[in-house]
Structure formats: C-alpha cells, structure tokens
Design a binder for these strands. Structure first.
Lengths: 229, 229
DNA sequence: CGGTTGTTTGAGGACGTTCAAGTACTGTGG
DNA sequence: CCACAGTACTTGAACGTCCTCAAACAACCG
C-alpha cells in the first residue's frame, strides 16, 4: 500500500472507528488492487478469500440469472466495506462484484479478517454497526420494490441524493442510467419513461443532468417519508 | 421469566453461542411478554426501546404505505432475534412487527443490550454472525424480487421448506396463504394463480397442504440454484 | 467520418393487480 | 351434531404497469 492509498484509508469511517493501530494489524497482509472500469472482482458462487474495502471509485454488487437477466442490488463507494457476510460466515458470495469506475480496492485476506474478529473485541463492535447499517439499506430497498412503482422508486432515488427538503435542486447523476435502472429494478427503457412521468412533477433531465423544480412537491408525489431519509 | 420461558431461551442458537453467564446478565432486566395472534409489537417509525427475541410463535416484520398497501419483509420464529439494527443504531424502526400466532417474546431493554455490546467482547462477536446471516436473507429476497416471477418465487419458497433435493415431498405450510403472499410480494389472488401455474409442474395444493411430485423437476423449473440453499 | 454505445420512443404483449363474485373452510352457539 | 357466520381461498374479467422487441436518434471516440 503506497502513501496515497494510506491516505484514502485514513479518510474512511471505518478507520476512524477502528483506530490506526488496529488498522495496521488488519492491513499487514493486505494488498491494494487497481481495478479498471467494468472488471469483475469476484463472481456469485465464489468462495470468499478476501474482504474488500473501496479506497476510490465505485463497485456494484449484482446478480445474474441463467437467462442473462441481471440486476444490481447495491453500489458501494470510497470508504465502504462490502459483502462482509460471505467472508464472515465462510459461505459463497451471493452476488457478483463489478467495478463501475477505475477503482482502487483494499483486499484483506478473509483469514486475517476473521482472526481479528475473534481476537479483537473492538473490531467486532465496529462491524456490528457497519452490518446493522447495511441491513437497513436492504430493508429500505425491499420496501421500495414491494410498495412503490417504478416512477416512485426513481423519485426516491433522486431525493436521496440531495440534502434539501424543499426548494429546487440540480444534480448530476454519477452512474450510467443503465446502472441506475438495474439498481432500481427496471429496464433502461422503463427508466427513461419514469423520467418522462416525473417531468409532469417538475423533474427535468437531459442525460445524467437532472433538475428538480420543487423538492417538497416531488417528495409528496413519490410518498417520500421520514424513514427514507 | 418463568422456567418454561427459560427453557425456550436455553434452546436457542443465541443462547448456545453466548453462554449461560452472559445470557443471565443480558436478561437481568428483561421481561417476557405473551402476545396474542395479530397484536402489534411495535410500529414503523417508533423509537426502539427493546431488542426482541421470539421464545415461541412467529412474528412478521412488514411495512405499510400511505394507501393501505402492506407487505411482509421477513418472518422470524422461535429462537430468533429480530430487527437488531434499529436498536443498535438508535434509529426508528423501518418496519412494523406483528405476531402471526400467539407468541411469547423476550424483551431486552435496548439500553442494556447496547451496554453489553460495548463492554462484552464476545457479545459483539456473536452478533456479527447473526447480522451477517440476516443480511444474506435480505439479499436473497432482493434477488428473488428482481429476477424471478411470482410463480418462481413461490416454487423457491416451497423448496426452501424441504430438505430433500429430489424425490417427492408433502408439506403443510404454517402461515396463512395471505401472509405467504405478502412475504412473496404478491396479492393473495396472484398466489392462488401461482399455485395454479405450478400444478403443471407437479405441485398439488389444497389450502395449506402441498405435495410436490418431483422435487428435482421443480428445482429446475424455478431455477433454484446452489445459492438458494 | 463511421462505428459503437447509450438514450428515447413506439407498438405489442406478458404478468400481476383490482374488483367482484363465488366456493370452501373453521369455529361457535344452538 | 348441525346450522350458521365469518373468514379464507379461488376463479373470472378487465385493466395497468412494466417488459420486449424494434427502430430512430444522439453522443462519444477513435
């Protein structure tokens, strides 16, 4: 790990929570891999050999079925650990990890990771919070899939990208529309139509550039509630 | 907690992993509540005051939207801790818990739970495994919702209830079809039709009583794979 | 400039929902 | 034990949403 990577690592929440000393022990035998856009880090069904942490870039976790349909369950960005569960439980990955951008990924051998889990009290404590947060992410997504329409899911997705609760907003989406569609559980065509349907509610878009005329109105329209914050 | 409840508690995985001594400290200020079928344990949006463990019976975790549509995200049974995340992170519940049967539920004050998390190393370690397991449950469900049809979801649900990989099977579903439909993300009518569509593949049902003529064939039909096990 | 890739639009169809009616269960009181 | 009410489940018809396939268009990159 060079000093730039070290700096990236030191900027993470995980580093702050765990402390420099424990991080040093954790990363003794870790390596950093530069991953080009589109590369696969591991495949669903693989046995986990490493725990991954995104130092820079973004990584998607997705799945494909036998008939070539694919979806994205979650996207992790710089500073985040992802799919810990497989490594912790020593069970095959349920998802495939793919780099969405040129990225740098810290790879900690699962063996060492699990050893620290067993020997360092504070380490487990930090992971409990991380896992609890990830769990809530997925619960929210399941609620969205089961209770909201495609248009509403897009609206919620946009609203989660901005902080303000009212007024206007302009944002540039940082994923391909392609990727966003997969994340939201719809086809690219449906995403395009979902943008179309939101146009009536003050959402204009050209490509990835989006403006929202009235945030409060959009929140009401897609039934964005306090639990979505 | 009376001795019957104590016995139920001692039969749980959680008890086995944590050990009697730690359990005693955890349950010092805990209480057991008898919950009638249909009762609400807490509502989405509530602030968590307790961590719950099912001693007997079953509890559903679900959500409702403003227009009265509701869904069930997960069902927990005897021996399981549920919605830890809200208590651990001190954030509002994302879901409503409802008792599906007359149940007995152990309620541990969140404060004590979190205190032990901070002071007892082994406690965090056990929870890491619990949370990792719960996470994988949700990932599987998201994959199902995004990649499989209603009929396939039902098939997978049935196959998960049985151990055998081939041959025939007979099983009695222990939830109302109503509840199963909500869990699988469809209406009761659609569930009924899903059973209808599986009839062509050797699944016969009358009410909750189901027989599967050829497990291996059904597995192929609904694309049940090794990651679903 | 042409090729590749990403986005939009249209037409048609599949899947699942809704609404409505009918049938089968289950438990209760007579 | 039966009658009955209430609930649970099934079936049918019509509708809506989202997907599929196909084509047009735009943007980007060599």
């Amino acid at each position: 790990m060079d000093s730039d990577d070290r700096k990236l690592l030191e900027a993470t929440d995980f580093f702050a929570a765990l402390g420099a000393e424990a991080i040093n022990r954790l990363t003794l035998s870790a390596s950093v891999q530069a991953v080009p856009k589109g590369a696969v880090l591991f495949l669903q069904g693989d046995r986990p050999e490493f725990v991954h942490l995104v130092l820079s870039g973004r990584v998607s976790l997705g799945a494909e079925d036998a008939h070539g349909h694919s979806t994205i369950v979650e996207i992790f960005r710089e500073g985040q650990l992802f799919i810990l569960a497989a490594a912790i439980l020593s069970k095959p990955y349920l998802m495939t990890a793919r780099s969405l951008t040129d990225s740098r990924v810290l790879m900690v051998p699962a063996e060492r990771f699990n050893a620290m889990l067993d020997t360092e009290p504070h380490f487990s404590r930090v992971l409990v919070d991380v896992l609890a947060g990830h769990w809530r992410l997925l619960v929210r997504q399941i609620k969205d899939l089961k209770l909201r329409s495609a248009g509403e899911r897009l609206g919620v997705y946009l609203l989660m990208k901005i902080d303000a609760r009212s007024g206007t907003a302009a944002l540039r989406l940082d994923e391909d529309l392609n990727v966003i569609a997969a994340r939201l559980g719809m086809t690219p065509e449906s995403l395009s139509r979902a943008f179309g349907s939101l146009r009536a509610h003050g959402v204009r878009s050209q490509g990835r550039q989006v403006t929202i005329d009235d945030i409060a109105k959009l929140r009401a329209q897609v039934r964005f509630d306090e639990l979505d914050e």
